[in-house]
Nucleic acid binder design. Sequence first.
DNA 1: CTACTAGTAGACAGATCTGTCTACCGGGCA
DNA 2: TGCCCGGTAGACAGATCTGTCTACTAGTAG
Lengths: 203, 203
Amino acid sequence: MGVRQSSRKPANAREQIDRAAYELFSQYGVRAVGVDTLAARAGVAKRTLYKYYPSKNELVLAFLRRREELWTRSWLQGGIERAAVTPAQKLLAIFDVFDEWFRRPDFEACSFIKVLLEHAESGHPLRKASQRHIDTIRLFIRGLAVEAQVPDREEFAKQWQILMMGSIVAAYAGDLDAARRTKAVGALLLARNGIDARPGTRK
Amino acid sequence: MGVRQSSRKPANAREQIDRAAYELFSQYGVRAVGVDTLAARAGVAKRTLYKYYPSKNELVLAFLRRREELWTRSWLQGGIERAAVTPAQKLLAIFDVFDEWFRRPDFEACSFIKVLLEHAESGHPLRKASQRHIDTIRLFIRGLAVEAQVPDREEFAKQWQILMMGSIVAAYAGDLDAARRTKAVGALLLARNGIDARPGTRK
DNA sequence: CTACTAGTAGACAGATCTGTCTACCGGGCA
DNA sequence: TGCCCGGTAGACAGATCTGTCTACTAGTAG
Protein backbone atom coordinates (compact mmCIF):
# COMPACT_ATOMS: atom_id res chain seq x y z
CA MET A 1 0.00 0.00 0.00
CA GLY A 2 2.66 2.42 0.94
CA VAL A 3 4.63 1.33 -2.09
CA ARG A 4 2.36 2.91 -4.60
CA GLN A 5 2.70 6.35 -3.10
CA SER A 6 6.41 6.39 -3.68
CA SER A 7 5.90 6.86 -7.40
CA ARG A 8 3.22 9.42 -6.85
CA LYS A 9 5.26 11.49 -4.49
CA PRO A 10 8.94 10.91 -4.99
CA ALA A 11 9.41 14.65 -4.61
CA ASN A 12 12.69 15.03 -2.80
CA ALA A 13 12.69 12.99 0.34
CA ARG A 14 15.13 15.54 1.64
CA GLU A 15 12.74 18.41 1.23
CA GLN A 16 10.06 16.39 3.00
CA ILE A 17 12.43 15.80 5.89
CA ASP A 18 13.37 19.46 6.13
CA ARG A 19 9.75 20.51 6.06
CA ALA A 20 8.73 18.05 8.75
CA ALA A 21 11.69 19.06 10.90
CA TYR A 22 10.70 22.68 10.56
CA GLU A 23 7.10 22.09 11.52
CA LEU A 24 7.77 19.81 14.45
CA PHE A 25 10.88 21.39 15.91
CA SER A 26 9.58 24.93 15.73
CA GLN A 27 6.31 23.95 17.33
CA TYR A 28 7.39 21.48 20.01
CA GLY A 29 11.08 22.11 20.53
CA VAL A 30 13.94 19.86 19.52
CA ARG A 31 14.13 17.75 22.65
CA ALA A 32 10.45 16.89 22.53
CA VAL A 33 10.50 15.49 18.99
CA GLY A 34 12.11 12.13 18.22
CA VAL A 35 13.45 10.91 14.90
CA ASP A 36 10.71 8.29 14.55
CA THR A 37 8.01 10.92 14.86
CA LEU A 38 9.93 13.03 12.43
CA ALA A 39 10.35 10.33 9.81
CA ALA A 40 6.69 9.44 10.08
CA ARG A 41 5.64 13.06 9.61
CA ALA A 42 7.96 13.40 6.64
CA GLY A 43 6.52 10.21 5.14
CA VAL A 44 10.02 8.90 4.84
CA ALA A 45 11.96 5.88 6.10
CA LYS A 46 14.20 6.47 9.07
CA ARG A 47 17.05 5.11 7.02
CA THR A 48 16.60 7.84 4.45
CA LEU A 49 16.67 10.45 7.14
CA TYR A 50 19.99 9.16 8.42
CA LYS A 51 21.30 9.14 4.90
CA TYR A 52 20.95 12.89 4.63
CA TYR A 53 21.78 13.73 8.21
CA PRO A 54 24.30 11.60 10.09
CA SER A 55 22.75 12.45 13.44
CA LYS A 56 19.79 14.21 14.96
CA ASN A 57 22.12 16.99 15.99
CA GLU A 58 23.02 17.71 12.39
CA LEU A 59 19.36 17.71 11.51
CA VAL A 60 18.68 20.25 14.23
CA LEU A 61 21.50 22.43 12.96
CA ALA A 62 19.95 22.28 9.50
CA PHE A 63 16.62 23.18 11.03
CA LEU A 64 18.13 26.24 12.67
CA ARG A 65 19.63 27.33 9.35
CA ARG A 66 16.26 26.89 7.69
CA ARG A 67 14.62 28.82 10.49
CA GLU A 68 16.99 31.69 9.86
CA GLU A 69 16.11 31.64 6.20
CA LEU A 70 12.35 31.35 6.57
CA TRP A 71 11.74 33.17 9.82
CA THR A 72 14.50 35.72 10.21
CA ARG A 73 15.08 36.67 6.58
CA SER A 74 11.90 35.94 4.72
CA TRP A 75 9.28 36.55 7.32
CA LEU A 76 10.70 39.09 9.74
CA GLN A 77 13.01 41.14 7.55
CA GLY A 78 10.69 40.80 4.58
CA GLY A 79 7.70 41.86 6.61
CA ILE A 80 9.52 44.90 7.92
CA GLU A 81 10.69 46.03 4.53
CA ARG A 82 7.16 45.72 3.27
CA ALA A 83 5.70 47.66 6.18
CA ALA A 84 7.98 50.64 6.50
CA VAL A 85 10.29 52.97 4.66
CA THR A 86 12.66 54.79 6.98
CA PRO A 87 14.99 52.78 9.20
CA ALA A 88 13.36 54.09 12.38
CA GLN A 89 9.96 53.09 11.10
CA LYS A 90 11.34 49.69 10.21
CA LEU A 91 12.59 49.21 13.73
CA LEU A 92 9.15 49.96 15.10
CA ALA A 93 7.49 47.88 12.40
CA ILE A 94 9.16 44.82 13.94
CA PHE A 95 6.56 45.02 16.65
CA ASP A 96 3.72 45.36 14.18
CA VAL A 97 4.87 42.17 12.52
CA PHE A 98 5.23 40.57 15.95
CA ASP A 99 1.75 41.71 16.90
CA GLU A 100 0.18 39.71 14.15
CA TRP A 101 2.46 36.77 14.95
CA PHE A 102 1.59 36.70 18.65
CA ARG A 103 -2.09 36.45 17.78
CA ARG A 104 -1.77 33.41 15.60
CA PRO A 105 -3.21 30.35 17.31
CA ASP A 106 -0.10 28.34 16.51
CA PHE A 107 2.30 31.01 17.76
CA GLU A 108 5.42 29.03 18.51
CA ALA A 109 7.85 31.60 19.94
CA CYS A 110 11.45 31.88 18.86
CA SER A 111 13.24 28.63 18.02
CA PHE A 112 16.64 30.11 18.74
CA ILE A 113 15.64 31.08 22.25
CA LYS A 114 13.98 27.73 22.79
CA VAL A 115 17.01 25.74 21.69
CA LEU A 116 19.29 28.03 23.66
CA LEU A 117 17.36 27.48 26.87
CA GLU A 118 17.10 23.76 26.25
CA HIS A 119 20.86 23.31 26.30
CA ALA A 120 22.66 24.34 29.47
CA GLU A 121 26.09 23.01 28.57
CA SER A 122 28.00 26.07 27.44
CA GLY A 123 30.02 24.39 24.72
CA HIS A 124 27.12 22.47 23.20
CA PRO A 125 27.00 22.88 19.41
CA LEU A 126 23.27 23.53 19.43
CA ARG A 127 23.68 26.21 22.02
CA LYS A 128 26.48 27.87 20.11
CA ALA A 129 24.48 27.68 16.89
CA SER A 130 21.49 29.32 18.58
CA GLN A 131 23.70 32.09 19.85
CA ARG A 132 25.03 32.70 16.37
CA HIS A 133 21.52 32.91 14.92
CA ILE A 134 20.57 35.37 17.64
CA ASP A 135 23.69 37.37 16.79
CA THR A 136 22.59 37.45 13.17
CA ILE A 137 19.32 39.08 14.14
CA ARG A 138 21.16 41.62 16.23
CA LEU A 139 23.43 42.45 13.31
CA PHE A 140 20.36 43.20 11.25
CA ILE A 141 19.05 45.51 13.96
CA ARG A 142 22.44 47.11 14.15
CA GLY A 143 22.29 47.79 10.43
CA LEU A 144 19.00 49.59 10.83
CA ALA A 145 20.46 51.54 13.74
CA VAL A 146 23.33 52.65 11.55
CA GLU A 147 20.93 53.76 8.84
CA ALA A 148 18.87 55.60 11.42
CA GLN A 149 22.04 57.30 12.62
CA VAL A 150 21.71 56.13 16.18
CA PRO A 151 24.73 57.38 18.14
CA ASP A 152 25.79 54.12 19.77
CA ARG A 153 24.69 51.39 17.36
CA GLU A 154 26.00 48.46 19.31
CA GLU A 155 24.40 49.43 22.58
CA PHE A 156 21.16 50.32 20.85
CA ALA A 157 20.99 47.05 18.93
CA LYS A 158 21.49 45.02 22.10
CA GLN A 159 18.81 46.99 23.90
CA TRP A 160 16.44 46.60 20.99
CA GLN A 161 16.97 42.87 20.89
CA ILE A 162 16.26 42.67 24.60
CA LEU A 163 12.92 44.29 23.84
CA MET A 164 12.23 41.85 21.04
CA MET A 165 13.07 38.75 23.05
CA GLY A 166 11.21 40.00 26.10
CA SER A 167 8.09 40.58 24.06
CA ILE A 168 8.24 37.10 22.56
CA VAL A 169 8.52 35.42 25.93
CA ALA A 170 5.77 37.60 27.38
CA ALA A 171 3.51 36.71 24.47
CA TYR A 172 4.24 33.03 24.96
CA ALA A 173 3.34 33.47 28.61
CA GLY A 174 -0.04 34.78 27.53
CA ASP A 175 0.23 38.51 26.96
CA LEU A 176 -1.24 38.91 23.49
CA ASP A 177 -0.63 42.65 23.53
CA ALA A 178 3.06 42.29 24.28
CA ALA A 179 4.08 43.65 20.90
CA ARG A 180 2.07 46.83 21.22
CA ARG A 181 3.38 47.38 24.74
CA THR A 182 6.96 46.82 23.70
CA LYS A 183 6.63 49.07 20.71
CA ALA A 184 5.82 51.93 23.08
CA VAL A 185 9.02 51.27 25.01
CA GLY A 186 10.92 51.10 21.74
CA ALA A 187 9.61 54.51 20.77
CA LEU A 188 11.02 55.88 24.01
CA LEU A 189 14.38 54.35 23.29
CA LEU A 190 14.40 55.79 19.79
CA ALA A 191 13.46 59.22 21.10
CA ARG A 192 16.23 59.07 23.67
CA ASN A 193 18.62 58.43 20.80
CA GLY A 194 17.40 61.53 19.05
CA ILE A 195 15.25 59.75 16.52
CA ASP A 196 11.70 60.76 15.87
CA ALA A 197 10.03 57.91 14.11
CA ARG A 198 6.64 59.52 13.80
CA PRO A 199 7.13 62.40 11.40
CA GLY A 200 4.41 63.77 9.20
CA THR A 201 5.57 61.46 6.43
CA ARG A 202 2.76 59.03 5.70
CA LYS A 203 2.67 55.34 6.55
CA MET B 1 28.85 0.44 52.63
CA GLY B 2 25.94 2.63 51.78
CA VAL B 3 24.11 1.31 54.83
CA ARG B 4 26.30 3.05 57.35
CA GLN B 5 25.65 6.48 55.91
CA SER B 6 21.95 6.13 56.48
CA SER B 7 22.40 6.54 60.21
CA ARG B 8 24.85 9.38 59.76
CA LYS B 9 22.59 11.31 57.47
CA PRO B 10 18.97 10.37 57.97
CA ALA B 11 18.16 14.06 57.71
CA ASN B 12 14.85 14.18 55.89
CA ALA B 13 15.01 12.23 52.71
CA ARG B 14 12.41 14.64 51.47
CA GLU B 15 14.57 17.68 51.98
CA GLN B 16 17.40 15.93 50.13
CA ILE B 17 15.05 15.26 47.23
CA ASP B 18 13.84 18.84 47.11
CA ARG B 19 17.39 20.16 47.21
CA ALA B 20 18.56 17.87 44.43
CA ALA B 21 15.54 18.71 42.31
CA TYR B 22 16.24 22.39 42.76
CA GLU B 23 19.88 22.10 41.79
CA LEU B 24 19.38 19.87 38.79
CA PHE B 25 16.15 21.26 37.38
CA SER B 26 17.19 24.87 37.68
CA GLN B 27 20.52 24.20 36.03
CA TYR B 28 19.62 21.74 33.28
CA GLY B 29 15.89 22.11 32.79
CA VAL B 30 13.21 19.63 33.72
CA ARG B 31 13.19 17.60 30.53
CA ALA B 32 16.92 17.01 30.62
CA VAL B 33 16.97 15.49 34.11
CA GLY B 34 15.60 12.01 34.77
CA VAL B 35 14.35 10.58 38.05
CA ASP B 36 17.29 8.17 38.32
CA THR B 37 19.80 11.00 38.10
CA LEU B 38 17.74 12.89 40.59
CA ALA B 39 17.51 10.08 43.14
CA ALA B 40 21.25 9.47 42.82
CA ARG B 41 22.02 13.14 43.42
CA ALA B 42 19.70 13.22 46.39
CA GLY B 43 21.36 10.10 47.79
CA VAL B 44 17.96 8.52 48.05
CA ALA B 45 16.27 5.41 46.69
CA LYS B 46 13.98 5.93 43.74
CA ARG B 47 11.24 4.28 45.74
CA THR B 48 11.50 6.95 48.42
CA LEU B 49 11.21 9.64 45.81
CA TYR B 50 8.00 8.14 44.49
CA LYS B 51 6.70 7.92 48.00
CA TYR B 52 6.78 11.68 48.39
CA TYR B 53 5.86 12.57 44.85
CA PRO B 54 3.51 10.31 42.89
CA SER B 55 5.00 11.38 39.57
CA LYS B 56 7.80 13.40 38.10
CA ASN B 57 5.28 16.04 37.16
CA GLU B 58 4.32 16.58 40.77
CA LEU B 59 7.99 16.83 41.65
CA VAL B 60 8.47 19.50 39.02
CA LEU B 61 5.48 21.42 40.36
CA ALA B 62 7.05 21.26 43.82
CA PHE B 63 10.30 22.46 42.32
CA LEU B 64 8.56 25.46 40.78
CA ARG B 65 7.01 26.31 44.12
CA ARG B 66 10.41 26.08 45.76
CA ARG B 67 11.88 28.21 43.03
CA GLU B 68 9.30 30.87 43.74
CA GLU B 69 10.19 30.78 47.41
CA LEU B 70 13.96 30.78 47.02
CA TRP B 71 14.43 32.74 43.84
CA THR B 72 11.47 35.09 43.52
CA ARG B 73 10.83 35.88 47.15
CA SER B 74 14.06 35.33 49.01
CA TRP B 75 16.64 36.21 46.44
CA LEU B 76 15.02 38.71 44.09
CA GLN B 77 12.57 40.52 46.33
CA GLY B 78 14.92 40.25 49.31
CA GLY B 79 17.82 41.61 47.32
CA ILE B 80 15.77 44.54 46.10
CA GLU B 81 14.52 45.47 49.53
CA ARG B 82 18.07 45.39 50.79
CA ALA B 83 19.38 47.53 47.93
CA ALA B 84 16.87 50.33 47.68
CA VAL B 85 14.40 52.40 49.60
CA THR B 86 11.89 54.11 47.33
CA PRO B 87 9.71 52.01 45.05
CA ALA B 88 11.23 53.55 41.93
CA GLN B 89 14.72 52.77 43.18
CA LYS B 90 13.59 49.25 43.95
CA LEU B 91 12.38 48.78 40.41
CA LEU B 92 15.76 49.83 39.07
CA ALA B 93 17.57 47.80 41.71
CA ILE B 94 16.13 44.67 40.07
CA PHE B 95 18.70 45.15 37.37
CA ASP B 96 21.52 45.62 39.85
CA VAL B 97 20.61 42.31 41.41
CA PHE B 98 20.36 40.80 37.93
CA ASP B 99 23.74 42.21 37.02
CA GLU B 100 25.48 40.25 39.70
CA TRP B 101 23.42 37.18 38.83
CA PHE B 102 24.27 37.29 35.13
CA ARG B 103 27.96 37.28 35.98
CA ARG B 104 27.86 34.16 38.07
CA PRO B 105 29.54 31.26 36.25
CA ASP B 106 26.58 29.00 37.00
CA PHE B 107 23.99 31.54 35.82
CA GLU B 108 21.03 29.35 35.02
CA ALA B 109 18.40 31.77 33.67
CA CYS B 110 14.79 31.75 34.75
CA SER B 111 13.27 28.35 35.48
CA PHE B 112 9.76 29.61 34.82
CA ILE B 113 10.68 30.75 31.33
CA LYS B 114 12.58 27.54 30.69
CA VAL B 115 9.71 25.32 31.72
CA LEU B 116 7.26 27.48 29.83
CA LEU B 117 9.23 27.19 26.60
CA GLU B 118 9.76 23.47 27.11
CA HIS B 119 6.04 22.75 27.04
CA ALA B 120 4.17 23.73 23.91
CA GLU B 121 0.85 22.12 24.75
CA SER B 122 -1.28 24.99 25.98
CA GLY B 123 -3.18 23.08 28.64
CA HIS B 124 -0.13 21.34 30.11
CA PRO B 125 -0.04 21.64 33.91
CA LEU B 126 3.63 22.57 33.91
CA ARG B 127 3.02 25.29 31.41
CA LYS B 128 0.11 26.68 33.36
CA ALA B 129 2.13 26.54 36.59
CA SER B 130 4.98 28.45 34.95
CA GLN B 131 2.56 31.09 33.76
CA ARG B 132 1.22 31.49 37.26
CA HIS B 133 4.68 31.92 38.71
CA ILE B 134 5.44 34.52 36.07
CA ASP B 135 2.19 36.25 36.98
CA THR B 136 3.29 36.30 40.60
CA ILE B 137 6.41 38.20 39.68
CA ARG B 138 4.39 40.66 37.67
CA LEU B 139 2.07 41.23 40.61
CA PHE B 140 5.08 42.12 42.70
CA ILE B 141 6.21 44.62 40.07
CA ARG B 142 2.71 45.96 39.92
CA GLY B 143 2.81 46.53 43.66
CA LEU B 144 5.96 48.60 43.32
CA ALA B 145 4.35 50.52 40.46
CA VAL B 146 1.40 51.34 42.69
CA GLU B 147 3.71 52.54 45.45
CA ALA B 148 5.63 54.61 42.92
CA GLN B 149 2.33 56.08 41.77
CA VAL B 150 2.76 55.08 38.18
CA PRO B 151 -0.35 56.14 36.26
CA ASP B 152 -1.16 52.87 34.51
CA ARG B 153 0.13 50.15 36.82
CA GLU B 154 -0.95 47.19 34.79
CA GLU B 155 0.57 48.39 31.55
CA PHE B 156 3.73 49.46 33.31
CA ALA B 157 4.15 46.16 35.13
CA LYS B 158 3.80 44.22 31.91
CA GLN B 159 6.32 46.42 30.17
CA TRP B 160 8.73 46.12 33.07
CA GLN B 161 8.46 42.37 33.06
CA ILE B 162 9.19 42.32 29.34
CA LEU B 163 12.40 44.18 30.14
CA MET B 164 13.27 41.70 32.87
CA MET B 165 12.66 38.62 30.77
CA GLY B 166 14.41 40.08 27.77
CA SER B 167 17.50 40.85 29.81
CA ILE B 168 17.60 37.31 31.22
CA VAL B 169 17.44 35.72 27.79
CA ALA B 170 20.03 38.15 26.41
CA ALA B 171 22.35 37.35 29.29
CA TYR B 172 21.89 33.63 28.69
CA ALA B 173 22.76 34.25 25.07
CA GLY B 174 26.03 35.78 26.17
CA ASP B 175 25.48 39.47 26.87
CA LEU B 176 26.93 39.85 30.35
CA ASP B 177 26.03 43.53 30.43
CA ALA B 178 22.38 42.93 29.66
CA ALA B 179 21.26 44.11 33.09
CA ARG B 180 23.03 47.44 32.85
CA ARG B 181 21.69 47.98 29.36
CA THR B 182 18.16 47.13 30.37
CA LYS B 183 18.33 49.32 33.44
CA ALA B 184 18.91 52.29 31.17
CA VAL B 185 15.77 51.46 29.20
CA GLY B 186 13.90 51.04 32.47
CA ALA B 187 14.95 54.50 33.54
CA LEU B 188 13.42 55.87 30.33
CA LEU B 189 10.20 54.07 31.02
CA LEU B 190 10.06 55.39 34.55
CA ALA B 191 10.74 58.92 33.35
CA ARG B 192 7.99 58.64 30.77
CA ASN B 193 5.66 57.75 33.62
CA GLY B 194 6.63 60.87 35.48
CA ILE B 195 8.92 59.15 37.96
CA ASP B 196 12.37 60.44 38.66
CA ALA B 197 14.27 57.66 40.33
CA ARG B 198 17.50 59.54 40.71
CA PRO B 199 16.79 62.28 43.23
CA GLY B 200 19.40 63.81 45.48
CA THR B 201 18.35 61.34 48.17
CA ARG B 202 21.26 59.06 48.89
CA LYS B 203 21.67 55.40 47.93
C1' DC C 1 19.30 -6.55 -19.94
C1' DT C 2 22.22 -4.81 -16.43
C1' DA C 3 23.74 -1.90 -13.05
C1' DC C 4 23.07 1.77 -10.31
C1' DT C 5 20.49 4.95 -7.45
C1' DA C 6 17.09 6.40 -4.25
C1' DG C 7 14.13 4.96 -1.45
C1' DT C 8 10.95 1.69 1.71
C1' DA C 9 9.61 -1.20 5.72
C1' DG C 10 10.81 -2.62 9.69
C1' DA C 11 13.65 -5.43 12.84
C1' DC C 12 17.22 -4.72 15.98
C1' DA C 13 20.74 -3.07 19.60
C1' DG C 14 21.50 -0.54 23.42
C1' DA C 15 20.58 3.30 26.16
C1' DT C 16 17.41 5.81 28.94
C1' DC C 17 12.93 7.14 30.65
C1' DT C 18 8.94 6.72 34.12
C1' DG C 19 6.95 4.11 37.38
C1' DT C 20 6.28 -0.43 40.26
C1' DC C 21 7.60 -4.01 43.16
C1' DT C 22 10.08 -7.24 46.23
C1' DA C 23 13.16 -8.14 49.87
C1' DC C 24 15.65 -6.28 53.23
C1' DC C 25 17.51 -3.33 57.26
C1' DG C 26 17.59 -0.83 61.60
C1' DG C 27 15.71 2.12 65.12
C1' DG C 28 11.89 3.42 68.21
C1' DC C 29 8.24 1.89 70.93
C1' DA C 30 4.76 -0.81 73.53
C1' DT D 1 10.04 -9.47 72.77
C1' DG D 2 7.47 -8.16 68.65
C1' DC D 3 5.96 -4.73 65.48
C1' DC D 4 5.80 -0.83 62.71
C1' DC D 5 8.07 2.76 60.01
C1' DG D 6 11.15 5.06 57.12
C1' DG D 7 14.22 4.04 54.22
C1' DT D 8 17.60 1.17 50.87
C1' DA D 9 19.07 -1.46 46.77
C1' DG D 10 18.01 -2.81 42.76
C1' DA D 11 15.34 -5.76 39.55
C1' DC D 12 11.73 -5.23 36.45
C1' DA D 13 8.07 -3.73 32.90
C1' DG D 14 7.13 -1.16 29.16
C1' DA D 15 7.77 2.84 26.56
C1' DT D 16 10.73 5.65 23.85
C1' DC D 17 15.08 7.33 22.19
C1' DT D 18 19.12 7.35 18.74
C1' DG D 19 21.31 4.97 15.40
C1' DT D 20 22.31 0.60 12.39
C1' DC D 21 21.25 -2.97 9.37
C1' DT D 22 19.07 -6.27 6.08
C1' DA D 23 16.16 -7.26 2.36
C1' DC D 24 13.42 -5.43 -0.93
C1' DT D 25 11.47 -2.28 -4.89
C1' DA D 26 10.97 0.91 -8.53
C1' DG D 27 12.91 3.95 -11.75
C1' DT D 28 16.68 5.33 -14.78
C1' DA D 29 20.84 5.34 -17.57
C1' DG D 30 24.09 2.88 -20.49
